[in-house]
Design a protein around this nucleic acid. Structure first.
Length: 487
RNA sequence: GCCCCGUUCGUCUAGCGGCCCAGGACGCUGGCCUCUCACGCCGGAAGCACGGGUUCGAAUCCCGUACGGGGUACCA
């Protein structure tokens, strides 16, 4: 395939959600696979609902995900502007040419009138009935004197519309079930039904990959697009592929209202963009029968729209986390340290900028935690005890109750005895001393012996390896914490 | 109501007529490893929505039913 041009064209109405990311990803992967062009267009024709805030969030989301675009906002391109709110003149011009060629007509009907006529006729087809298709000049004049302003409607052809959907195969609609639809409001504002196909035509889009919700608008777009080609406004009829929904809990489409649908929730939870993207790719597509962890490069290489599954997929947090964890383990120590840094700063574990001592400590501690966290945020709980000021150090209450009871305190007491005069403060020496005192001396099982010490020193039952942690904490602070656990 | 799309383990999927008494992954579960956690390793339970065809042979093709979803706007 040559000169593939695809577009991703969200509306800036609300916070970017996971379906947004999945659609963006598939379009991006398709473009990159075919060495084509990825166009990013902003469909902000609905001025009521479009917001600057949402626009910024969308740009931020794309950047976070690492899905770069070849044409669009902030990068420009030969088919701009890429914000529909700045393309009013273009739409007005197209509308005029369409009207001139009789592809469209003006409709003066009110919704009530249309409903009444449908009720009277007993038609099962909802929507407009074509009443104004062939109005006489007198009729138009009459409506005008009534003060009515017309909407512009597209004259749907008779017969049927069939296309070969890239995801679903042949799909046919009888046009008797596709009413003449509105292209512009009575006040002249263009509607999605017009601007989407017009921009696809003008931007020479060759493949339209979008959500399944737009499948039923395709039989309207095809004849409109054909008209645009006929008028020389467009060059090619794009191919269409309708992607399955991403569903939430239960069996409903993940809507913007569901909190778990928000993309930034995952970013803030410490997901890696490559981890989330990998998981999202799996919602409707598989790279191989026996593999589901891969990077973007591998996806680009393997992605074929024909392999996309047509049935809706449910978003499963557990699996998303597992895939993310796999990507965490693929990161080098330096990479994971760098990624974890902002989260540690946000949580107040580290100052910003990080001082030299903490930088060094972090460097020593990361090897211990890197392999045992599955999300970036988990580093906060794992590392907090190392960096906290001694007077601000606290222990998890439930853990204290469970492990620092009388028996536990006895263990801590003995540990203190064993470590107070330890010659060399190293993980090996600490382990040997505690092993001798608690396991051999007290006859405790290792897990019971070290549990109380762990809570005393790190404040939690879950921590990096104990002896290494104590070495990093240092003799003074470690002993101090053993002491304070007894208080 | 009408139109359209969909239906393989709980979930995501592989499968495009014989390689499938259905493979992988997450989750669940039994065990191993182990100073906690995480990782890793070994094992287990769990599925072709239903009914008819077509065929020597169907998870795969066709029809119907059921169920789920989307659309039916001067939203996108």
């Amino acid at each position: 395939m040559t000169n593939v041009r695809v577009r991703f064209c969200p509306s800036p109405t609300g916070s970017p959600h996971v379906g947004f990311a999945r659609t963006a990803l598939y379009n991006w992967a398709f473009a990159r696979h075919h060495k084509g062009t990825f166009v990013f267009r902003v469909e902000d024709t609905d001025r009521e609902r479009s917001t600057r805030e949402s626009y910024d969030a969308m740009i931020g989301a794309m950047r976070w995900l690492g899905l770069d675009w070849d044409e669009g906002p902030e990068v420009g391109g030969p088919h701009g502007p890429y914000l529909q709110s700045e393309r009013g003149d273009i739409y007005r011009d197209v509308l005029a040419r369409l009207a001139e060629s009789k592809y469209t007509y003006e409709c003066y009907c009110t919704t009530d009138e249309v409903d009444a006529r449908r009720k009277a006729s007993g038609s099962k087809v909802m929507g407009y009935d074509g009443f104004c298709r062939d109005l006489t000049d007198e009729q138009v004049a009459a409506f005008r004197t009534l003060g009515r302003e017309p909407v512009v409607r597209f004259r749907m052809p008779d017969g049927s519309i069939t296309w070969h959907d890239l995801v679903r195969g042949d799909i046919t609609f009888e046009t008797q079930f596709v009413p003449d639809f509105a292209l512009a409001r009575a006040n002249g504002d263009p509607l999605y039904t017009l601007v989407n196909p017009v921009d696809d035509a003008l931007m020479e889009i060759t493949h339209v990959l979008r959500g399944e919700d737009l499948l039923s608008s395709t039989p309207r777009q095809i004849p409109l697009h054909a008209a645009l080609v006929e008028l020389g406004i467009g060059k090619v009829m794009p191919e269409f592929g309708h992607l399955p929904f991403v569903m939430g809990e239960g069996n409903k489409k993940l809507s913007k209202r569901d909190p778990e649908s928000h993309l930034f929730l995952y970013r803030d939870q410490g997901f890696l963009p490559e981890g989330l993207l990998n998981y999202l790719a799996l919602l409707g597509w598989a790279i191989a029968a026996d593999r589901d962890v891969f990077d973007l490069e591998e996806m680009v290489e393997a992605f074929d729209i024909k392999d996309v599954n047509p049935n809706p997929a449910r978003f499963d947090l557990k699996k998303a986390e597992a895939i993310n964890a796999a990507h965490m383990r693929m990161l080098s120590l330096d990479e994971i340290t760098e990624r974890v840094l902002p989260f540690l700063k946000d949580a107040g574990v580290l100052s910003d900028p990080v001082n030299a001592a903490d930088t060094q400590l972090l460097e020593l501690a990361m090897p211990l935690v890197a392999e045992r966290i599955n999300k970036l945020t988990e580093s906060v709980d794992m590392l907090g005890f190392l960096f906290v000021d001694e007077d601000a150090f606290t222990r998890d209450e439930a853990d204290v109750e469970k492990l620092l009871n009388d028996d536990g305190r006895a263990v801590v007491r003995r540990s203190l005895d064993a470590l107070e005069h330890l010659g060399e403060w190293s993980a090996g020496a600490i382990q040997a001393a505690l092993q001798a005192e608690l396991v051999e001396g007290m006859g405790l099982k290792p897990r019971n012996a070290f549990g109380p010490v762990r809570v005393a020193v790190t404040g939690r039952r879950v921590s990096p390896p104990l002896f290494e942690s104590m070495e990093l904490l240092g003799r003074e602070r470690s002993l101090q914490r053993l002491q304070s656990a007894l208080a």
